[in-house]
Amino acid sequence: MKILAILRKELQTYFYSPAAYIVFASFLLVVGYLFWVVLIASKVANLEPLLYNAAFILLLASPVLTMRLLSEERRTNTIELLLTSPVSPVEVVIGKFLACFVLYLILIVLTFQYPAILHTYAQNLDWGPIISGYIGLILLGAAYIAFGLFASSVTENQVISAMLTFGGLLLFWIVGWTKNVLDNVYGDALSRLSLLERFSEFLKGMVDSGNVVFFLIFTIIWLFVATRVLESDRWR
């Protein structure tokens, strides 16, 4: 019930400010452009490049969506209101996570027009990789937002929070490249942490339970850390 209240409040805040609309508009503009360019160039009814591009654009967009979530509460001292009301830090974190995730899902749903367009003009569209790709994109979003929420919990400065999210996510995105340099167990281990490596398998049409669990654990860990950071205010 209190989680719902926080979720509703956060969604209201997104739509009261121009931030959400601007993120929506830029995302759709870029994704639409890429869809058109790739389709004209390749003349193949394949959604894989689009989903890959969308994932990377969302990596750039999600820090903007998450940077405010806890930083602004700290800056304006409304955190004092939340923590002195009978709401637990877990409820605060989950409510905010869900609000941002709803926004992310809206963005994803808005891209359903592209498979629909392909379906209209192409025969025998292969739905398998499209569906698995979307599942990957949704799981990836949860991971992005959880990490962003953590970054937002440690600072009262939105810019720092956004940069931390962007830097951290980018590192988790490309950490798999070590595979080509380190031809040993460490290279392999690092590539297993890579968001890109994991997500690519969804794009190829594979919904591997190991990858699903990876994204879920990644999400839960960062949400947990964010909660602890919020609680730690009480110990200091």
Binding site: R8, K9, T76, S85
Partner: peptide, 19 residues
């Protein structure tokens, strides 16, 4: 502790929920 972008009514409703 106010949320500047909210209206007074929606703010009080939010408080009622979390309280």
């Amino acid at each position: 502790p106010l949320y500047p972008e909210m209206t007074v009514k929606s703010y009080l409703k939010f408080i009622a929920d979390i309280r």
